[in-house]
């Protein structure tokens, strides 16, 4: 339960900030910003899905987290750390050729890291963790 509340608070904050961003741009956004918005909504949706899953487990009388869910998160986090390093190298390479704004570069990098993490969590949830 302790870990569910921060997930929900962060999700609400992200959605609130996104709403502010949309209001500032007066709901007329270029395609790149719409893609970013969709990715943000998908990531927040995934975080809410994880929180709801934990709540359901608690209601059934099961623990919110157990050794498998912890291992999945640990493995996804460590793999996404390695993948993020390569992502940033690729971003620097791209930035040398196409001059991007600092905010765009950092924003895309952070979103990319979040996407990698979500993809890896889903991958390990489907494939499982064997031989460890």
């Amino acid at each position: 339960m302790k870990k569910i509340i921060p997930v929900l608070v962060v999700s609400i904050l992200v959605l609130g900030t996104t709403l502010l961003w949309m209001t500032n741009s007066k709901f007329s956004m270029p395609v790149a910003e719409i893609v970013q918005l969709v990715v943000i909504i998908l990531i927040v949706g995934f975080a809410v899905y994880l929180a709801v899953n934990r709540l359901r487990s608690v209601r059934r009388g099961e623990p919110a987290e157990d050794e498998l869910s912890k291992k999945i998160l640990q493995k996804a986090s460590s793999f996404s750390f390695y993948a993020s390093l390569y992502l940033w190298v690729a971003m620097i390479f791209v930035n040398d050729r196409i001059q991007l704004d600092t905010e765009v570069l950092i924003g895309t990098g952070i979103l990319g890291m979040a996407v990698i993490w979500v993809v890896l969590v889903i991958f390990f949830k489907i494939r499982g963790i064997k031989h460890e």
């Binding site: 498998l68 499982g128 963790i129 031989h131």
Partner: peptide, 15 residues
Amino acid sequence: VRRETIVFLEKGKYN
């Protein structure tokens, strides 16, 4: 543990 863990164990997806 969570029910999901038992499912994974039975399918041989988790040691």
